[in-house]
Design a protein around this nucleic acid. Structure first.
Length: 285
DNA sequence: GTGCGGCAACTCTAGACATC
DNA sequence: GATGTCTAGAGTTGCCGCAC
């Protein structure tokens, strides 16, 4: 989030938390207009409570759909800003991860957001679209052809040419792919690290999608081409930590082996899942 | 005196849940 | 399914202390 010069109205598209945005907007109006206050805002928006804005900023009050409309009016938002604000509110007040992911996806569809922050948009799509990461891996194999049809047919379900084209453009934009001196697509070793709340909810969505694909693979992919196994154990929290550490180490080993593979001609997904099935206390749920 | 921020206590409403 | 009760959250009211 950039620091604002005095008198510069904060752009809503820079924010992923509507309360932080409201605070920035309040500070802006306060510095611009001497008579602007929480009370003035409430009068303008039609709230009887003089400090309702403050309560919302502090997270002590949520916004109902009707209140959200009043905020949009009182803060003089444009139509697209208003739509984006509604998305932020939905995202910020969502009660479940699924609801949060849906709201995050809606935010990504905002045209204004895309035009103002094409790079950020590409970063978020990297997590939101399950096929971005596999396409990047496919580029690193020795069978890769830069043919939109060919790439699309390598996936189940098949990807449209437009989806492949957009993914390649975004991966290039993010520096996760590059063109060598001959113009051929190559995989770069750059990582992206988007720490925003929207991105982290989309990472959860990505994991869910990959777990779902693992589940589908039991019926759709011959066992000779996959390895799916699981075991149920009883253990202490200490051993849970130990197992988590072992999984992390094993993942590193797998990545090292894959990195040294000169004959890569397939893209696989390797999932690890460790979660409690039986709970000791209510608070653990 | 006026307008502000802050706060506690209040009412209202909707949803969850239990009982019949 | 209808009804009653409980609870949490949204929004209101009224008051206080402070700064100008």
């Amino acid at each position: 989030m950039q620091h604002l010069e005095k008198n510069e109205k904060p752009s809503i598209y820079e924010y992923t938390n509507f309360r932080v945005y409201l605070k920035a907007l309040y500070d802006h109006f306060k510095s611009e207009t001497s008579h602007f206050s929480y009370r003035y805002f409430s009068q303008r928006a039609g709230f009887s409570s003089p400090n309702f804005l403050k309560l919302v900023i502090e997270g002590k009050r949520n916004l109902s759909p009707a209140s959200t409309e009043k905020f949009i009016f009182a803060l003089k938002m444009t139509k697209s800003e208003g739509e984006f604000f509604k998305g932020l509110v939905q995202f910020g007040q969502s009660k479940s991860p699924a609801e949060r992911s849906r709201a995050a996806s809606l935010l990504l569809k905002s045209k204004a957001f895309k035009s103002v922050y094409p790079l950020k948009d590409a970063e978020l799509k990297y997590y939101a679209k399950w096929y971005y990461i596999p396409i990047r891996e496919l580029v690193g194999t020795n069978i890769f052809k830069e043919d939109l049809n060919w790439i699309g047919k390598r996936f189940r379900p098949e990807l449209k040419k437009s989806e492949v084209k957009e993914a390649l453009e975004d991966l290039l934009l993010l520096g996760l792919l590059y063109r060598d001196e001959s113009g051929n697509l190559k995989q770069s070793y750059q990582n992206i690290s988007t720490q925003s709340e929207v991105a982290s909810s989309l990472v959860s969505q990505y994991h869910k999608e990959m777990i779902r694909k693992a589940s589908d693979s039991i019926d759709e992919i011959h066992r000779s081409q996959r390895e799916i196994s699981g075991t149920c154990i009883s253990c202490s929290p200490l051993v849970v930590d130990k197992i988590k550490e072992m999984v992390r180490e094993f993942r590193k080993e797998v990545m090292a082996v894959a990195a040294q593979d000169q004959g890569a001609n397939r893209v696989y997904q390797l999932n690890f899942q460790l979660f409690p099935l039986v709970f000791n206390e209510e608070s653990e749920k």
